[in-house]
Design a protein around this nucleic acid. Sequence first.
RNA 1: GCUGCUAUAGUGUAGUCCGGCCAAUCAUGCCGGCCUUUCACGCCGGCGACUGGGGUUCGAAUCCCCAUAGCAGCACCA
Length: 512
Amino acid sequence: MKEAISEVSSLSHARQEELLRTLDPALAEDIERPRDHFRSLPALEKADGGVVMRFAPNPSGPLHLGHARAALLNDAYVRRYGGKYILRIEDTDPKRIDPTAYTMVREDAEWLGLAISDIVYQSDRLDIYYAYAQKLIERGGGYVCTCDPERFRELKMAKKPCPCRETSLEESLDAFSRMLEGLYGEGEATLRVRTDLSHPDPAMRDFPAIRILKSPPHPRKEACVYPLMNFSVAVDDHLLGITHVIRGKDHIANTRRQKYIFDYFGWEPPVYRHYGRMGIEGVILSTSQMRAGINSGEYSGWDDIRLGTLRAIARRGIFPQAVREAVIEIGIGETDISFSWENLYAHNRAVVDPVANRYFFVPDPVEVTIEGAPSQTAHALLHPAHPEKGTRDLHFTGKALVPRNEIREESGMVRLKDLFNVEIRAGGQSPVCRYAGESLSEARARKAPIIQWLPPEECVPATLLTPGETIKGACERLVAGEAGAVVQFERIGFARIDSVGDEGITAYFAHR
RNA sequence: GCUGCUAUAGUGUAGUCCGGCCAAUCAUGCCGGCCUUUCACGCCGGCGACUGGGGUUCGAAUCCCCAUAGCAGCACCA
């Protein structure tokens, strides 16, 4: 037996399969094919008949890269299995609502290209939550607690019940009505879900479901009794027919809590997947911290290019498709990861390179006279791979703007791209530049750098903004027609033309 | 403190469930070369990882135990 095994083992997989096919073709069909791993997400259980999923941000600010992961992952599964995708605005905490965020979230979701089929506002559903809260009490699953929160916490940690836990069903129902009538002050009464006080995880013990909030007022509704997310989410997930939930692992405990509610009502919970925490190099994702920075004037707004908001990266010329690919590549692993800009840029480069027109941008320009050079016109291609897009024509008439850092003692020969060769002798204040022929092959042979340049009378002042620095320079006039588009400044990198004004062009650097 | 999750190159990821051509995949990054009137794109080559220690086994990235590290939760936030 052993010999037989080692004999088979010594054969190659291909050979083994071949032999098996001759012995038992049916069995051979069962051989597991190596999964073609083109970045496909793992399959979801119970999803073959279609899914109903949701993206559930709270409207405290615009969407950022962290939201994009949740939104796009769920979106990818809805597209894969078919079904519905619900955008659920979780606005049950007036303290954390920025009224302008309602629009920003919708704009950002649209930018991402989410396949949203419905939008639901939780603030429209308060009566539903109240009704289910009553049912929960009737089923013995909840009680109104009027203890001091601090006191309750102590009891909970000691695995001891608070006095309210023993109140009768009727009393709890009455107390809950009084909550709704506004007879309690803020924090004076809370509906708790009855769980298991001896549960080893303190996070599970009689967690709160509904609380009273007198201020600030809700921007959309008049109310002072609001559900906590664990309650509203459980009720909504059931009522909206959510089948699968993909969310961050910070919700693992919430999932367990929500299961108590599902159990009390006899509902079947969705299938959950929790992905790991995602940090982003050099960027804060906390909405409150970003807001603080905006208020203090550190950032110019939600679309300040140093921020990780979607509007900020859009402004820099990152396309939603690149974000989608980067996020899908990351997947739903439970490991904590750090999101790398390099990976995002690589995806964006693939999106943008084939379509971005090429232009010259000369940073820190210095004007030089090129002695002995004939006037002539350079016909530079808008895109090297698409000659049919045409050319930008630059007329040379004796002078050129070139990047200051190309003029050095040791410069020697450089070639002005699409024009001719120039011999530079730096030394002192005024560099001397002399025409050195048209020969491209000579420039090659002498390893002359091929640099960008501009006719001084045909250029526009331009500012290139990167997250770290502001580069002043000049660019071709034609760039003015690219407002809103992403172009490639040759030898510099891709940039989005943000605005074209009297004082010149402003562009945001995307990446190399 | 209590509870839970995770651990593969600089980064992301495949493989882990069901141990075996895994001297570990793919991408990105970096380095070198080729191509090229851009330092872009494309092509070729190279660099670089199974957290540590025990155990089980003929055989462990894969199973078990311990340790370590990171993360999350224990909010009248979501």
